[in-house]
Amino acid sequence: MNILTGDIGGTHTRLATVEQGAGRFRVVDIARYASPDFDGLLPIIESFLHDHPQVQLQQAAFGVAGPVVNGRCRTTNLPWELSASELSTALGIPHVHLLNDLEALAWGIDTLDDSSLVTLQAGHASNQGNQAVIAAGTGLGQAGLTFDGAQRRPFACEGGHTDFAAQTQRDTGLLQALQSRYGHVSWERTVSGAGLVELFRYLLDSQAATTPGWLDDPQQDTAAAISQRALAGDDALCAEALAWFVELYAREAGNLALKLNATGGIFLGGGIAPRILPALKKNYFLQAFMDKGRMQPLLEAMPVKVICEQHTALYGLARYTGLAKAAT
């Protein structure tokens, strides 16, 4: 049976039907929508069903960027309020599951094979150890998987909104600049697409460099433009910003790995990590990841992998739905 799944982000929403066969998941129909163009999830679903009349809706699960409490979510980077029960009623199906988007990603990890992952550090995984997932994109999502004695159970958290911790004089300057504009400064303010832009603008200001004409082009993805120029070696300041971004990403990944004691491994997901793999493979990522004083040996033993399968969250939602149905 096909399951309608959706990965709901602040920038884009992907809806897809997923089917399972021979122990593997496969996307059947998929479409992508600009989230800000809609006033909620239901109009997107209705558009998808209109364009895919062959879909016979029986089960649905959606991963959404924001905290989900009692089947409801006020999205973090969109002015939406979502309710699993209201969606169930509107769609005329008995069960709609609403999960945090990183929890959905975590449910998808066990659907992946080695070809879907890039190893940054092999480590020595504990078969019964906890795992962690961190994903920079429009925001900074985090989740964990805890071993319950039989299998790993994903759980959501909002760790990306914890306080940003400056480690260097440059970090402190950035923190002060962001505090003057935003007040509270979270890790998401620095380790996200918007965060990369903030780093680049700070470097421009602190070095009194000329602002490039392309920076304020409304037709482009500014974070992508910075990373592309950095990886191509076309712009030294872009390269500096990306290297700084990678360092901060690694530091917060190390923080999460320690908080969850992720001896089973930590996974980098989201839209940014696969696009900046050459930078993540440089030594400064692992150096920053393991820069935790007496805890360095623990981090050295943790596998660190990048998720390169773009449908992982959709597979995770389908897997979760299947397990929930089997439990009823």
Rank of each mutant, 00 (worst) to 15 (best):
M1C: 07
I3G: 11
I3T: 14
T13H: 09
T13A: 13
L15F: 00
E19H: 13
Q20S: 13
R26G: 10
D29I: 01
P36Y: 01
I44R: 07
F48G: 10
H50I: 08
H50G: 07
H52D: 07
Q54E: 14
Q56N: 14
L57H: 02
A61I: 11
G66T: 01
R72G: 14
T75H: 04
L87Y: 02
S88F: 02
H95W: 03
H95P: 06
L98K: 05
E103C: 07
A104E: 08
S126L: 06
S126V: 01
A135M: 03
A136R: 05
T138D: 08
G139M: 06
G139H: 03
Q142R: 10
D148R: 05
A150T: 12
A156H: 06
G159N: 10
G160H: 04
Q176F: 03
A177S: 12
S180E: 11
G183A: 04
G183W: 03
V185A: 09
S186F: 05
S186E: 14
S186A: 15
G193N: 08
E198F: 00
F200L: 07
L204Y: 02
L204A: 03
D205C: 04
S206F: 03
G213R: 00
W214A: 02
W214Y: 06
L215H: 01
D217C: 09
D221R: 02
Q228K: 08
R229K: 13
L237K: 08
C238G: 01
F245P: 07
A250N: 11
G254H: 12
N261S: 15
A262D: 00
P274D: 07
A279M: 04
K282L: 15
Y284M: 09
L286P: 12
A288R: 08
D291E: 13
M295H: 07
P303C: 10
I307K: 12
I307E: 11
A318E: 14
T321I: 05
L323Y: 05
A324D: 14
A327S: 15
